[in-house]
Write a protein that binds this DNA or RNA. Structure first.
Length: 565
RNA sequence: UGGGGUGUCGCCAAGUGGUAAGGCACGGGUCUUUGGCACCCGCAUACGGAGGUUCGAAUCCUCCCACCCCAGCCA
């Protein structure tokens, strides 16, 4: 991390850690962990947790483990663990040699279960899933005790061992903690600790036929690893008493669990289940579709790790359910790319411009600044010639009052080139559409400034027709049409809320020639348009750019509010 | 109706009894060879509501209201 990171604001978890260190709690250690389940790709919400856990450890000279919560083999896969490792690393964090898997502890967890059975605090229950649900009671009524609750320790031990041996079919029995079927906290009504699953695990293969539940596993793993501050999301607040109960009965070390609110963003969705659905139904091309809020999607879109870290610092950490305006994310990437991205010129929707008084056979290479924010970025040469292309949006035959780009009779500047004046408009006789603009140039304004100090109100980007390189450009909009669409509960509502214009492809934009050699992952600012990066789909003969984000656009705002005229 | 949480500007978010930080968004302006960037100014007499304690309350007390989470052999 460097000086350009924004300053870290105070938040309640940092405050707790500072107090713990002041009081000498945990021998002043700070040891956190990021515990994803490898059942999908990481998204920007996970980035918040990653920045929090790894960031706090780094800040206080502590450690942060990467631990996969892989207790459900039916949903997990190595593809996911690989992507998660890549994403965490890409975000700029390192777990050194502390890569763990809950599955590494399966034997140890099993022994903990055996001990609880021996202590008379766990039992094998033969009730079906439906029956367990019935016996659990409701939010307002206490549950009833399972008829198998008072099995002998010997019977429980035998049955549990045979569950492990694979003697029983899936769903036929579970191991349950014997706590309190009347507890107002449903998590304490004899929760399931182990279930039978004859499924191959991505790491342990077929070694196990029983798998521990998350609630039994997670707290144990944190304890085994000596985690000091176990940071998780709000929905686990109710589970804390259960984790404490397990640890107390087993006389194990207690981490301190602290809950914070997960991130929500407008115009997108942060549920792994819903993201998986988008991928499976082909509504998104893949997990790394640039429209997805996944880390891999953002990366492909052109977001930088630093911009995401800055975003996470800016949104804060608190306990109230919050939905952050996606404009803040966009602000964070603009801020970062403004400093870093080389500027280039490219025309998305070309309008042919002929400079009538410029020789047909002449080419001038003009100097252009690579990045006005960074003098060290230097300059480059761009070719100018008689036939050019400018943006269709930069010309209007009948301009409204506040439009000060090119129009009949009007003079504007071509960036780094010349002042040109529109002399004539050529239209398609069939459609009446403007297909060409005829202009003259002022030779005294070479480079883009005039000796007489004459001002022009607009500066346009442009590209020389014969030199331009074609490129496919993919423009992205929000995933959903409405800010809160991700909340949709039914799949139908959810899909209907998708923004049909989230992807717009421009098959052949025209770019300045230097871009011909651009490589996947490289980011540029297309002047006056936005930030773009080369997509991995690009090949030797075919450039493909993703628009990361547009530039702020004051003219668009004027048009939108209807104040143009 | 049980339990656990949360309510401070359009969106986040500081604040922990002493008289409402900051960011984004938004509005106005300066500058400008990007209608970008940068810079300047503005933007909560007010902290879910009602009472109360206090010289003094967003901060303490009481009651009320709203929203979120929990009835997976998911995590």
């Amino acid at each position: 991390m460097n000086d350009s990171e924004i300053s870290k604001p105070a938040h309640f978890i940092r405050t707790i850690i500072i107090e713990d260190r002041a009081s000498g709690r945990f021998e002043r250690r700070v040891h956190t962990r990021f515990p994803p389940e490898p059942n999908g790709y990481l998204h920007i919400g996970h980035a918040k947790s990653i920045c929090l856990n790894f960031g706090l450890a780094r800040e206080f000279g502590g450690r942060c483990n990467l631990r996969f919560d892989d207790t459900n083999p039916t949903k997990e896969a190595v593809e996911y663990v690989e992507s998660i490792k890549e994403d965490v690393r890409w975000l700029g964090f390192d777990w050194d040699d502390r890569l763990y898997y809950a599955s590494d502890y399966f034997e140890r967890i099993y022994q903990c279960a055996v001990r609880l059975i021996e202590q008379g605090q766990a039992y094998v229950c033969d009730l079906s899933a439906d029956q367990i649900r019935e016996y659990r009671g409701t939010l307002t009524e206490p549950g009833r005790e399972s008829p198998y609750r008072e099995r002998s320790v010997a019977d429980n031990l035998d049955l549990f061992q045979r569950m492990r041996a694979g003697e029983f079919p899936d769903g036929s029995r579970v191991l349950r903690a014997k706590i309190d079927m009347a507890s107002p906290n449903l998590n304490l009504r004899d929760p399931v600790m182990y279930r039978i699953l004859h499924a191959a695990h991505h790491r342990t293969g077929t070694a196990w036929r029983i798998y521990p539940m998350y609630d039994f596993t997670h707290g144990l793993c944190d304890s085994f690893e000596g985690i000091t501050h176990s940071i998780c999301t709000l929905e686990f607040e109710d589970h804390r008493p259960l984790y404490d109960w397990f640890l107390d009965q087993l006389e194990l070390y207690h981490p301190l669990q602290i809950e914070f609110a997960r991130l929500n963003l407008t115009y997108t969705v942060m549920s792994k289940r819903k993201l998986l659905r988008l991928v499976e139904k082909g509504l998104a091309r893949s997990w790394d579709d640039p429209r997805m809020p996944t880390i891999s999607g953002l990366r492909r879109r052109g977001y930088t790790p630093e911009s995401i870290r800055n975003f996470c610092d800016r949104i804060g950490v608190a306990k109230s359910n919050a939905t952050v305006d996606i404009a803040l994310l966009e602000y964070s990437i603009r801020e970062d790319l403004n400093r870093k991205a080389p500027r280039v010129m490219g025309v998305l929707n070309p309008l042919r411009v002929v400079i009538e008084d410029y020789p047909d056979d002449r080419v001038e290479w003009l100097e252009a600044v690579n990045n006005p924010e960074d003098p060290a970025a230097g300059t480059r040469q761009v070719p100018f010639s008689r036939v050019l292309y400018i943006e269709q949006d930069d010309f209007m035959e009948q301009p409204p009052k506040k439009f000060y780009r090119l129009a009949p009779g009007r003079e504007v500047r071509l960036r780094y080139a010349y002042y040109i004046t529109c002399r004539e408009v050529v239209k398609d006789p069939a459609t009446g559409a403007v297909i060409e603009v005829r202009c003259t140039h002022d030779p005294q304004t070479r480079g883009g400034s005039s000796a007489d100090g004459r001002k022009v109100k607009a500066t346009l980007h442009w590209v020389s027709a014969v030199h331009a390189v074609p490129a496919e450009i993919r423009l992205y909009g929000h995933l959903f049409s409405a800010a809160d669409a991700g909340d949709a509960t039914s799949d139908e509502q959810f899909e209907a809320a998708l923004n049909p214009e989230s992807l717009q492809v421009i098959p052949q934009a025209l770019l300045e020639p230097g871009l011909a050699a651009a490589q996947p992952g490289q980011t540029f600012q297309f002047e006056r348009l936005g930030y773009f990066c080369v997509d991995p789909d690009a090949s030797d003969g075919h450039l493909v750019f993703n628009r990361t984000v547009t530039l702020r656009d004051a003219w668009a705002k004027i048009q939108k509010t209807g104040n143009a005229s």
